[in-house]
Amino acid sequence: MGIVIPVDGPAGSGKSTMAKGIADHFGWDYLETGALYRAVGLRVLDRRGDLGDPALAARCARELRFECRKTPDGWRNFLDGRDVTQALREERVSDAASRVSAFPPVRQALLAFQRSYQDRAGAVVDGRDIGTVVFPEARLKFFLDADIEVRILRRFRELREKGIPFDADALAEDIRARDRRDRERVAAPLLPASDAVRVDTSRRSIDQVLALMLDRIRQEYGEVIEAP
C-alpha cells in the first residue's frame, strides 16, 4: 500500500483545493470522490431518470467509467473519455449527487474504485467518508470545516468566477440542505474520523491551510517522502 491522504469535509470547506495542492506538491495522484457521485447523478439526469430510484442510481454507478486526470489546464474529470469537469459543477448535478450518494448500493458500487488508489505510490483522496469508510487505516487523515456562511460565500465566488449562473438564495438553501443530508444519512454520514487532524479554514488563507497540512504530512511521512 502506498501513501494515501484522506481529506474530508463539507461543501465549501476547501478540501478539494487543499487535496489538489498536496497532490501537486508531492507529485501524487488525486481523486475527488465528490466528482464520482456527481458523475452518477449526471448519468441519472442524462437518462431523465428518477433521482429517488436507488436501483437506477446503483446501475449507473456500476457502469461508470471515470478518470481524474492532470492536464495542462489542471486536474480534470473525464466520464467515458469526455471532459465533464464543468458539467459536474452545475448546481443541478451537485444536488443530484447529494441525493444518489445517500443510497448504500451506490456507495458500495464506488468503494472498490476509490480503494484502488491505495495501490498508487502516493494519492490524495477527498470526500466525505474517506477517513471513516474508504481508508480508515490511513496513518494520517484530515477533516476540514468552516462556518456555513463562509462556505456559502466561497461557493458564490467559485461559480461567479467560472461564469456559471446561479440563484443566490436557492444556492444557499441547497448547501444547507446538502449539509443536513450528508450529516444525517444512514450510510456513511459526514463525520470526522476519531483520529483525523481537524482544520477550521474559516479565517485561514489557502496558503496558510496548505502549509499546515504539508507540514503535518512531512512530520508523519518524513522517512519515506522527499518534498520538492
Rank of each mutant, 00 (worst) to 15 (best):
G2S: 13
P6E: 04
G14N: 00
M18A: 04
M18K: 00
M18T: 00
I22E: 00
A23Y: 07
F26K: 04
D29A: 14
L31K: 02
G34L: 06
A35S: 15
A35C: 13
L36D: 00
L36H: 00
R38G: 03
R38D: 04
L42Y: 09
G49C: 13
D50R: 08
D50C: 09
L51H: 10
A55H: 12
L56P: 11
A57I: 04
A57F: 01
R62G: 03
R65E: 14
E67P: 03
C68D: 06
T71C: 13
D73G: 14
F78Q: 11
F78W: 10
D80S: 12
R82L: 10
V84I: 11
V84W: 05
R89F: 10
R89P: 11
E90W: 07
S94Q: 02
S98I: 07
R99T: 14
R99Q: 12
S101R: 03
A102K: 07
A102P: 08
L110G: 00
R139T: 04
R139L: 09
K141T: 02
D145K: 00
V150K: 09
F156L: 07
E158D: 15
L159N: 11
R160C: 03
R160L: 09
E161I: 08
G163I: 09
P165F: 06
A170C: 05
D174N: 15
R178Q: 11
R178V: 13
R180E: 14
R180W: 12
D182N: 13
D182Y: 11
E184T: 15
R185A: 08
V186R: 12
A187K: 14
L190D: 03
A196M: 04
A196Q: 01
V199I: 15
T201Y: 01
T201R: 01
R203F: 05
R204T: 01
Q208R: 01
A211R: 15
D215A: 14
R218K: 14
R218S: 08
Q219E: 15
E220V: 01
G222K: 10
I225A: 05
A227N: 10
A227H: 12
P228I: 09
